[in-house]
Amino acid sequence: MTRRLVLATRNAHKVGELHAILTASGLDVELVGADAYPEIPDVKETGVTFAENALLKARTLADATGLPAVADDSGLCVDVLGGAPGIFSARWAGRHGDDPANLRLLLAQIADIDDPHRGAHFACAAALALPGGTTRVTEGRLTGTLRHTPAGAGGFGYDPILQPDTDPAMVRGRTCAELTADEKNAISHRGKAFRALTPHIAELLG
Score class of each variant (00 low, 15 high):
residue 133 G to I: 06
residue 102 N to A: 01
residue 82 G to Q: 07
residue 178 E to M: 04
residue 99 D to G: 02
residue 1 M to W: 15
residue 83 G to Y: 07
residue 176 C to T: 13
residue 15 V to L: 04
residue 196 A to H: 04
residue 27 L to C: 12
residue 42 D to I: 12
residue 199 P to W: 05
residue 100 P to I: 00
residue 114 D to H: 14
residue 188 S to D: 01
residue 104 R to A: 09
residue 19 H to R: 14
residue 99 D to F: 01
residue 136 R to G: 15
residue 144 G to N: 08
residue 98 D to H: 04
residue 175 T to S: 11
residue 196 A to R: 01
residue 119 G to C: 06
residue 133 G to S: 04
residue 160 P to C: 00
residue 206 G to Q: 12
residue 183 E to N: 10
residue 169 A to K: 08
residue 193 A to W: 08
residue 131 P to E: 08
residue 120 A to S: 01
residue 40 I to Y: 07
residue 58 A to S: 13
residue 33 G to H: 03
residue 177 A to D: 05
residue 113 I to K: 08
residue 155 G to W: 02
residue 23 T to V: 13
residue 116 P to W: 15
residue 139 E to R: 15
residue 51 A to I: 13
residue 111 A to K: 11
residue 202 A to E: 09
residue 24 A to S: 13
residue 24 A to L: 11
residue 23 T to W: 08
residue 84 A to W: 13
residue 122 F to D: 03
residue 165 D to Q: 15
residue 4 R to A: 10
residue 4 R to P: 12
residue 126 A to K: 05
residue 12 A to S: 12
residue 58 A to N: 11
residue 79 D to F: 15
residue 154 G to E: 00
residue 185 N to L: 07
residue 23 T to G: 05
residue 34 A to G: 03
residue 141 R to H: 15
residue 82 G to N: 06
residue 183 E to H: 10
residue 105 L to N: 00
residue 37 Y to Q: 00
residue 60 T to I: 03
residue 31 L to K: 01
residue 74 S to D: 02
residue 73 D to N: 10
residue 21 I to Y: 08
residue 190 R to M: 00
residue 132 G to F: 15
residue 150 P to K: 06
residue 164 P to L: 02
residue 34 A to W: 00
residue 54 A to D: 11
residue 165 D to A: 14
residue 17 E to P: 07
residue 122 F to R: 12
residue 166 T to N: 08
residue 55 L to S: 06
residue 10 R to C: 14
residue 58 A to H: 10
residue 37 Y to I: 04
residue 38 P to Y: 00
residue 137 V to Q: 04
residue 59 R to V: 02
residue 182 D to V: 07
residue 18 L to A: 07
residue 36 A to T: 08
residue 107 L to R: 04
residue 129 A to V: 12
residue 26 G to E: 05
residue 170 M to H: 15
residue 184 K to W: 03
residue 203 E to R: 14
residue 46 T to S: 14
residue 161 I to V: 14
residue 15 V to E: 06
residue 139 E to V: 07
residue 26 G to C: 02
residue 138 T to D: 12
residue 162 L to Q: 07
residue 17 E to T: 04
residue 173 G to P: 05
residue 205 L to Y: 12
residue 16 G to T: 06
residue 25 S to A: 15
residue 197 L to P: 02
residue 145 T to N: 12
residue 162 L to P: 05
residue 54 A to E: 06
residue 64 A to L: 00
residue 182 D to Q: 14
residue 90 A to T: 09
residue 155 G to H: 02
residue 113 I to F: 14
residue 40 I to T: 13
residue 117 H to M: 12
residue 49 T to S: 10
residue 113 I to Q: 05
residue 183 E to P: 11
residue 21 I to G: 06
residue 155 G to I: 01
residue 159 D to F: 05
residue 172 R to D: 14
residue 204 L to T: 15
residue 152 G to D: 06
residue 133 G to V: 09
residue 56 L to I: 05
residue 104 R to E: 08
residue 18 L to E: 13
residue 15 V to S: 02
residue 59 R to W: 12
residue 60 T to G: 01
residue 159 D to K: 10
residue 113 I to G: 10
residue 7 L to D: 06
residue 8 A to Y: 01
residue 79 D to L: 09
residue 165 D to F: 14
residue 15 V to Q: 04
residue 187 I to Y: 03
residue 146 L to W: 03
residue 15 V to H: 03
residue 38 P to D: 02
residue 82 G to M: 05
residue 53 N to G: 10
residue 122 F to P: 08
residue 132 G to R: 01
residue 151 A to P: 11
